[in-house]
Design a protein around this nucleic acid. Structure first.
Length: 553
RNA sequence: GCGCCCGUAGCUCAAUCGGAUAGAGCAACGGCCUUCUAAGCCGUAGGUUACUGGUUCGAUUCCAGUCGGGCGUACCA
């Protein structure tokens, strides 16, 4: 509706031959006495027209009124806001639109024709996913969901990993040493090796299968392979529990095997953007707007991470994506400018790339922050979290806050409980509606009429909804598609959570104010329409953030 | 030192990219179940938006500075 009002404003401005200011805003006022939708046009025009805003507003209102449907009144208030009061019937009749759209309600076309790639998690297979990865995983998956809801032709979820490198060598050697210990060798286990129990488990399974025959094997062979295999299986299982399925697992190694890294060095050289110094190859990032040049190949001949990173993003462009999103933790923030500069230097359109940075997660247990380190095995895994709280709660916790805000994850709260948990508030509203519908089917006969699913679609009596709680709820439901759009455009899914909480709250209020099933068939059907529309919005909204909508609780 | 993020109720966080009287959840206090789910509802209390200045009709939001916290600042990823 916001869009329609905005359009109306533009039309009237043109008609009256007023200048059209750049950033006209329409918004939902916080207070109901300020109407349903409010615009700041008059204030924006004040300077240009050299007239007081309220006077300009007055000159607009008449014309606005003549051209507006569904509008009950237009008022001028405060410093010069123009406030639109919409007819209640508009919102009530809109319930039918929601019911007709059903599972599709909230799908928008903001990204029609776009092929998107969302890269997230991307943890190397050195250990189980921890709470830190959880925020990344949930954020990435939810943004992908929202892109699908906003009309993308295709959204690929991608996991980028590296199974070469030093980290992985240490991992293999950690398994090897644990294995040797198991078969009775007296070896030291270095402190900076991977300390987690999962290493011992992998070693144990190796000793079970191969006995002592691997005594002379080196770390890079079967030890590393088995570790990678086992850990990746574990990671995928964890993601699966969270409801996350990747379309691609992209191995950094393939960039070398396919010659893309080598090719990229050649391109930079040909463009005169790379040079040798001190035995290393440098990229002239200083000429690309960055502070200093960066090494892309070390003097040892080994590339630094940024070279394959650039090659990787180049591949994403080649694969035809129009939107390339990276979900990165704040600790990786510094790596992005290099990639961006590299991509730009290649003549690719860096505007297609979007970065979503999220701040760190602090686990709080018994009031104390828990320090975590994968290597030291001092961490809480995502799986443990889900064991205690369930996937829905875990997802919700990670999505409650804006990405740029530090997230305090209260372990005791997440573990402990059910009723203190905000996510149950939403789910409860959904389950409650489901229960009412069951009741309607089974018991309406006792009230002198019969309800079966779909009857509410024909409720001509929908205009019987006139209570304050009913109107308020219907108004909020109408905004759902705009919330989807807002979330996807800002890459901030936490707004969906607050919106749904608000819908749930308005529903609970309605529930306490009005009885749904009564002897009055018309009124009952009308209220069932409202219930069903609410259920639709809750279910669809929960689907966008990947949380279940239970039929009973 | 420099760069990015943050500082809002006792606690954890919002605030529709500059709007009107800054809002939720938890915690505290007082009410509401013989009627469709009390995992709920109603009410009370809680604030100089870290601080100082600036920009304008208007600032939690933008700019400068100060204080405090987090993360970076590699020929680690």
């Amino acid at each position: 509706m916001k869009q329609q009002v905005l359009q109306l404003v533009y039309d009237v401005l043109r008609k009256l031959q007023y200048p059209v200011p750049g950033a006209i805003k329409c918004e939902y006022p916080k207070v109901s006495t300020h109407g349903d939708i409010s615009t700041n046009v008059a204030m924006l025009l004040a300077k240009e027209l050299k007239q007081p805003p309220r006077k300009i507003a007055e000159s607009l209102v008449q014309s606005l009124k003549e051209n507006a449907e569904d509008v009950r009144d237009i008022q001028i208030a405060g410093p010069g806001f123009i406030n639109f009061f919409l007819k209640d019937e508009f919102f009530i009749r809109h319930l039918k639109t929601i019911l007709n759209a059903g599972e599709q309600f909230g799908k928008i076309d903001a990204h029609t024709g776009i092929k998107a790639n969302v890269e997230f998690v991307s943890a190397n297979p050195t250990g189980p996913l921890t709470v830190g990865h959880g925020r990344n995983a949930v954020l990435g998956d939810t943004i992908a969901n929202l892109l699908e809801w906003s009309g993308c032709d295709k959204v690929d979820r991608e996991y980028y990993f590296n199974n070469a490198g030093r980290q992985m060598r240490v991992l293999g050697d950690s398994v090897r040493l644990r294995y040797l210990q198991l078969i009775g060798e007296n070896v030291d286990f270095p402190e900076d090796y991977y300390q987690g129990d999962y290493i011992k488990e992998i070693a144990a399974s190796l000793s079970e299968t191969y006995g002592e025959s691997l005594r002379e094997e080196n770390a890079e062979g079967i030890f590393k392979e088995r570790a990678e295999e086992a850990i990746f299986a574990d990671i995928k299982k964890t993601c699966d529990r969270l409801g996350i399925k990747f379309d691609y697992f992209y191995n950094e190694k393939s960039l070398y095997d396919d010659g893309y890294v080598e090719e990229l060095i050649g391109i930079f050289r040909n463009k005169g953007l790379a040079y040798e110094k001190d035995g290393a190859i440098w990229l002239k990032t200083s000429e690309m707007g960055l502070e200093q040049d960066r090494v892309i190949v070390k003097s040892t001949g080994e590339p630094t991470y940024r070279l394959p990173d650039i090659a990787y993003h180049r591949e994403k462009f080649k694969r035809g994506y129009d939107l390339i999103i990276d979900i990165l933790g704040a600790d990786h923030h510094a790596t992005y400018p290099d990639v961006l500069a590299g991509v730009k230097a290649l003549g690719l359109d860096e505007a297609k790339m979007k970065l979503v940075i999220y701040q760190f997660v602090t686990i709080v247990s018994e009031g104390q922050p828990v320090k975590m380190s994968t290597r030291k095995a001092n961490y809480i895994t995502l799986d443990e979290l889900m064991d205690e709280a369930g996937p829905d709660v875990v997802r919700y916790f990670f999505l409650m806050r804006s990405p740029q805000s530090h997230l305090n994850f209260d372990l005791d709260l997440a573990k402990k409980e059910t009723e203190e948990n905000p996510v149950y508030y939403l789910q409860y509203a959904h389950a409650r509606i489901a229960s009412i519908l069951r009741f309607a089917i089974s018991s309406s006969v006792e009230f002198g009429w019969r309800y079966s699913e779909g009857d509410e679609q024909n409720a001509e009596c929908i205009d019987l909804l006139t209570g304050k709680a009913e109107i308020e709820l219907a108004k909020r439901l109408e905004q759902f598609p705009e919330i989807v759009e807002f979330c996807v455009n800002s890459y901030e899914p936490h707004h969906m959570g607050s919106y749904l909480t608000d819908v749930a709250m308005l529903f609970h209020k309605f529930y306490h104010a009005h009885r749904v099933i009564t002897e009055d068939r018309g009124l009952s059907l009308a209220r069932l329409s409202l219930c069903l529309a609410t259920k639709t919005v809750l279910a669809n909204g929960l689907r966008t953030i990947g949380i279940g909508a239970p039929e009973r609780m």
